[in-house]
Design a protein around this nucleic acid. Structure first.
Length: 312
DNA sequence: CAAGCGTGGCT
DNA sequence: TAGCCAAGCTT
């Protein structure tokens, strides 16, 4: 059993034929058609969604399921319909509105981004990949996603869904490598339709296929529009070989402790006394370490009077 | 570059 | 049930 397309090295297959003739239309046409019929009706995909709404959704969706993002996104956009509206508030309000989405540093960075957009970009979300990438909390994926979804530009939008789809469809393996490779980026770029609006459509369609059909655990291959072209399916859907892919325990970690401390501050109307934080975690050493880290991260503000609050 | 960073639903 | 997993980023 040889993996035909493992590469990772120097031998990179460069398409010798014109872009419009290469693999891409083979995969893109059926997936685009599938998307037209099966796309979820998400508010940040609505025709009247703003670039700011798209940006907010992308940050919230980092490592977080759509179902949990929806209500928070709705409330967020109602309260802060523009970057300037959010920028005018203390960062602690962003952290509070973030609720239980998790990874609350995202809220802080989104607030920082709102201020940067207001100050450096006249209040308009920038459209260039480079300008987006320069904003805090925005990496390669999110910059490409916003440029593509909000501004209909042509970018390889390579998230966990797309990486998995391409791993199966083209490479014939169940899961992509643990960390993104150059080869994956080149593959994704080679599949991009030439026309920017179509490329943008393809980007969201490939993601949606990964989210709804080509899922990590139990793929619904019977519903797949490119099953007949899928290398993984053709190979008999071989199981992932190699070391287990993850393993993040949560109970008892600093993360859980941080979460409990921050929850107290989110749910409080104003500053709280130290004992109110102490009761949420019995191990004092770990608790103090977590609190110090929260302060260092800017998520908690230690007041002069000894109380604690969400940041300004 | 591997590790750290929340939370909850699903199997 | 206890992992596995979810539109990643930063250091």
């Amino acid at each position: 059993m040889h993996s035909a397309d493992r590469n990772e090295g120097t031998t990179r297959r460069v398409p010798q034929w014109p872009r419009a003739m290469n693999l891409n239309s083979l995969y893109t046409a059926p997936i685009l058609a599938w998307y037209e019929a099966n796309a979820r009706d998400l508010p940040w995909r609505a025709p009247d969604a703003t670039p700011w709404g798209v940006l907010v959704s992308e940050i919230m969706l980092q490592q977080t399921p759509v179902s949990r993002v929806l209500p928070v996104w709705d409330a967020w956009m109602a309260r802060w319909p523009t970057p300037a509206a959010l920028a005018a508030e203390p960062s602690g309000e962003a952290v509070r509105a973030w609720g239980r989405l998790g990874y609350p540093r995202r809220a802080l960075r989104l607030h920082e981004s709102a201020r940067a957009i207001t100050e450096r970009h006249g209040g308009e979300v920038p459209s260039s990949h480079a300008d987006l990438l320069a904003l805090p909390g925005i990496g390669a994926y999110t910059a490409a996603a916003v440029a593509s979804f909000a501004f209909r530009q042509r970018h390889a939008v390579l998230d966990t869904n797309v990486r998995r789809v391409l791993a199966r469809l083209v490479s014939g393996v169940e899961y992509p490598p643990k960390s993104q490779t150059r080869a994956e980026v080149e593959l994704a770029e080679s599949l991009l339709p030439p026309d920017p609006p179509t490329a943008a459509r393809w980007a969201v369609a490939a993601m949606e296929l990964g989210a709804l059909v080509c899922t990590a655990r139990t793929p619904r291959c019977v519903d797949c529009p490119v099953l007949d072209k899928c290398a993984w399916h053709a190979a008999g859907r071989p199981a992932h070989d190699g070391p287990p892919r993850r393993g993040q325990t949560y109970a008892g970690t600093d993360r859980q402790c941080r979460g409990r401390i921050l929850a107290v501050l989110r749910d409080a109307e104003g500053p709280v006394e130290k004992p109110a934080l102490d009761v949420v975690w019995s191990d004092a050493v770990q608790r103090e370490r977590a609190l110090d880290a929260l302060i260092a991260d800017g998520l908690v503000d230690p007041l002069d009077d000894g109380r604690y609050a969400l940041p300004h």
